[in-house]
């Protein structure tokens, strides 16, 4: 089955990033395809490489990066949500005159159309969040 996963909550604050990660892993293990993982609302905070959790805790961001690289998954941060919350890639830094970037490897910033397209193209849209 082809899946799109939407994550609406930030890491550490809320379990949805963890639940979505384990769901994604389990789905891939069962042979399902992940068309896209779309991060919305505070979920865009899953995509900052500046995250530095304590050493004895899970690193949610690098965990996503590794999953995406291992399985070639398209991970998209909503541009409007990312702009509000200060998640920046090279293009956004240039467009908005910012002096730094913080996007983590494996993520890209794009529009909400990518979420709607995920709903259209996938057999299931699975949403994690409140």
């Amino acid at each position: 089955m082809k899946l799109t996963i939407q994550i609406n909550e930030g890491p550490y604050q809320h379990q949805s990033a963890d639940s979505a990660y384990f769901f994604a892993k389990a789905a891939l293990d069962k042979g399902h395809e992940i068309f896209r993982i779309f991060f919305y609302h505070d979920g865009v905070n899953n995509g900052t490489r500046l995250t530095t959790p304590p050493q004895d805790d899970r690193n949610i961001v690098s965990r996503w990066t590794e999953l995406a690289q291992e399985h070639d998954i398209d991970m998209v941060l909503c541009v409007a949500a990312a702009q509000r919350r200060g998640i920046v890639d090279d293009g956004e830094a240039e467009r908005n005159g910012k002096d730094a970037t913080n996007i983590a490897p494996g993520f890209r910033i794009s529009g909400l159309g990518q979420l709607v397209e995920g709903g259209i193209q996938s057999d299931r849209l699975v949403v994690f969040g409140d």
């Binding site: 919305y40 409007a80 949500a81 529009g111 909400l112 159309g113 979420l115 709607v116 397209e117 259209i120």
Partner: peptide, 12 residues
């Protein structure tokens, strides 16, 4: 942010 998805999604 829900309304933003609705408005963008309308184009589809």
């Amino acid at each position: 942010e829900s309304l933003e998805v609705v408005l963008i999604g309308a184009a589809f």
